[in-house]
Design a protein around this nucleic acid. Structure first.
Lengths: 193, 193, 193, 193
DNA sequence: AATGAATGAGTGTTCATTCAT
DNA sequence: AATGAATGAACACTCATTCAT
């Protein structure tokens, strides 16, 4: 592949990402092309049709996340605890353009390749949650599946951002307090959404 | 407004609700009209344009929920505890067609009237959570905002249904165990979603 | 169907016929709509897609011809001889917009409904040729299939017209001369194309 | 012109011929280039635009035929009779890719250069028919123009092939029977195509 | 008041043609 | 001189909206 073609391909993907993020799956090919400073024909040279572009973006974002999650799931990872590994993955999740607009997610969902990655991602995260609970760094009184739900709520909301207070608070709340107690009655009134 | 006109309006709303639920925001005016047994012209007699119809549906569903939440929030409500009131509101939430497809929610989100109701709904639910924690029926070791997140995860997922096991399990998990202890260390590894 | 809709449908068909005749199958939907004094949307209300329009026109022309051929094939038809019946059918053929441009014919050919009619048309014409030969009004020294080929050459050329000298000459040449002889050596030098 | 350039030109023409034969005028420049093992850029180096390529192919095929017909028309040609010369020309005609799809023929028809060759071809063939009838080897009871029509039917049908039974039968039927008689009344009912 | 036919701007997509590599 | 990437006008088709019946 020629250098300029590869460059253009990247420009297209970036433009599509931006367009979908800002305007949802409603963003048209023409608009994406305009953002990329190219013409529609070039889009179609790189992606056979609209859904191929959507799929590519969804797969790239998800694949990136899954790769990172896999790395962090390996015991020999740099993270000192499974809890910390989980925090890193979730933080990375918010850094990635995973928070694609809901409608793009909906558009990509039925694609088998996307479904497969979502399932792997879920499995990796779930395993991390369970492991963190086993090692005692993540409170054990919440079902792993519920924890996953909370994480998803935190990271996949439209507009989620890496530095989000919600994510921070969430992990604070999920951590087993160092003094050994998730003592009942602790008021957490400040950690509102 | 004549009786048949009011009837038509209701039929239209019901048809739109069904169409959006099944086919997402992709559902067209013609399809909605067909489901309603009417013609597009009649749709436009009742709603000036598509977004007015979307807004009406979102407001109806949300308004219904907020009204119910308001009623349950009044201390003199029939619910014996705030925990029970919360459970009723959440159950009602799942009964309502609030779990509209993500794309419809996205379409309705920017409307100020919808935003206002979402905020009121969040405030009411949050107050109920705090109150339930105060009265000791809802475990206090989870931040109210996190509880809200879990509830949202449980109720607003696409495809959520009133009888959902997740909702049941969630409230089981949220209840302070009768023996007085949310004892630390309880493993919940088997309670996967 | 409303009166104006039926009128418009006819206008569309006429416009499509004219457009295809003049510009071949390359004629676009927009042009057909413009000729009809309508907008593309109306074309698509009446015909689900381009090929449906092409098919309709081909079927109408062919169906008309086949109906006429069927009528003339009935022994009790008004034509005194099978030869005369054949001549009428072929003349009618040239009167119909059957001489659609080659590319339209090519576009319509793969449609099963069109193929079926073409086959029936061929069968009817072939039967007429054989019958005319049996009754002695059509010279018997040419294979019926070859006669059919000649007829097709005469009628289905692009630009064929009812009054065509070729058709006249062709039937003169096919007729058994009244004096009983297709005598060898007759010069026909004047009957050139 | 360099040797490789001439070679490329030939390859392009052959590829275009194959593409048009198989897929009709719908064949695109990119497909032709792919068949030729070249890129579109090279096509445009040899032919200024699509219609130039179409014209070249039509002219080549027709010119080849006309040259052959001219040669056979010269009295001193190798053919023992005019009838045999005609048979050779027609056979050659079927060997040439003249039977291009209808839509290509339509595309090339309006070009004056093509029209001129078609007319010369018709004139040559017609003259051969008349001459063959004069020398008594081609039955004289069919108008030369009609004979031409039959020949066209036989050779220019889409899908016509050199060895075609139709061509053989046609010439058998056109030949004056050796016993001297195209005797009237001969039934040919069984010789269906 | 209801109908459903007509509108037309907009979308995805193609392809002959041009031009940087 | 060849390549193949980029162009952009054109096409088939859709659908929210309007309006004659």
């Amino acid at each position: 592949m020629r250098a300029d073609a590869r460059r253009n391909r990247e420009v297209i993907v970036a433009a599509a990402l931006a367009a979908f993020s800002e305007r949802g799956a409603a963003a048209g090919m023409e608009e994406i092309a305009r953002r990329a400073g190219l013409s529609v024909g070039t889009l179609y040279r790189h992606f056979p049709d609209r859904s191929a572009l959507v799929e590519h973006i969804a797969l790239t974002a998800l694949g990136d996340l899954v790769a990172f999650a896999r790395a962090q799931s390996a015991t020999e990872g740099a993270a000192p605890t499974r809890f910390e590994a989980l925090r890193r993955v979730v933080t990375r999740c918010a850094e990635l353009p995973l928070a694609l607009t809901a409608s793009l997610a909906e558009a990509a969902a039925p694609l088998p390749s996307v479904t497969a990655l979502v399932e792997e991602s879920d499995a990796l995260l779930l395993a991390l949650v369970v492991a963190a609970q086993r090692e005692g760094t993540l409170r054990g009184d919440i079902a792993p599946g519920d924890v996953l739900g909370m994480l998803r709520t935190a990271t996949c909301r439209p507009g989620a951002r890496p530095g989000d207070p919600l994510t921070t608070v969430l992990f604070d709340g999920l951590a087993r307090s160092p003094d050994g107690g998730d003592e009942f009655g602790r008021r957490a009134g400040s950690a509102l959404v």
